[in-house]
């Protein structure tokens, strides 16, 4: 999945003033690359990821998914892309609290119309891959923070997406579990050839990324360090 942006801009109105969260961003992300986007809090990282991940619509500019202009895609098709081709990992994991670990991972499979058996088999495999095979009937609140993040990653991988978008995935983790998460994302990128786009403050992610961009006040620049 190739992602390209052209003059991508997102403005928000806060009270009477207007904030440009993402300002004329031109970006090209090739298949199977590991991209890190770094920048201080409020610099526009999450907004950029939401635009790339088709969660949000730009004020100006365009996002291309495999040469297709996303602004021309229907809302239904955008959802299908989010469901089948993009996996999201959130800083606060965003697991559904009333579902078990297994059900959380089964959910995208169920939404994709997979049979009950397929859902169960796939979710079990993914959870075993992230070393949570023995925690499948636990609720999110019964897990450690590191375990929750691994469940979130397993959920993001459920429909074998071509791209994983992770918004500060190590932001809530201690250094040990942060390293495990980074290793997991790196493995996914290298073994599955999945594009990984990470917004982060974490230097360790920057170290493993193929390309790092810096975003400050909505303006993106290639990090050459």
């Amino acid at each position: 999945m190739r992602i390209k942006t052209e003059e991508l801009t997102r403005k928000f109105r806060v009270g009477s003033s207007e904030i440009t969260a993402v300002n004329r961003v031109n970006l090209e992300i090739n298949e199977a690359t590991f991209i890190a986007i770094v920048g201080p809090s409020g610099s526009g990282k999450s907004t950029l990821l939401n635009l790339i991940g088709l969660n949000d619509q730009p004020t100006y500019g365009r996002v291309f998914i495999d040469e297709t202009d996303a602004s021309l895609i229907s809302g239904r098709r955008r959802r299908e892309i989010r469901l089948l081709r993009i996996g999201f990992v959130f800083q606060t994991f965003n697991l559904l609290p009333t579902l078990t670990v297994l059900e959380n991972v089964e959910l995208p499979l169920s939404l994709a119309g997979k049979s009950q058996e397929e859902q169960r088999e796939k979710a079990m495999t993914l959870l075993e891959n992230v070393s949570l095979g023995d925690r499948i009937y636990h609720r999110p609140k019964e897990l450690s923070i590191g375990e929750m993040q691994r469940v979130a990653i397993a959920r993001a991988l459920a429909n074998d997406p071509e791209t994983i978008i992770a918004d500060e995935p190590t932001g809530e983790l201690d250094s040990k579990t942060a390293k495990e998460t980074i290793d997991l994302l790196f493995d996914i990128n290298r073994k599955r050839k999945t594009t990984v786009i990470v917004a982060t403050h974490d230097e360790k992610i920057v170290e493993v990324a193929d390309t790092t961009y810096t975003i400050i006040d909505g303006k993106l620049g290639l990090n050459t360090n």
């Binding site: 989010r82 469901l83 606060t92 965003n94 995208p108 959920r155």
Partner: peptide, 16 residues
Amino acid sequence: RRDFATLDAIGAPKSF
């Protein structure tokens, strides 16, 4: 709100 936003982000249809 976060649960619904998460469902939306992972591609759940509005009808769901």
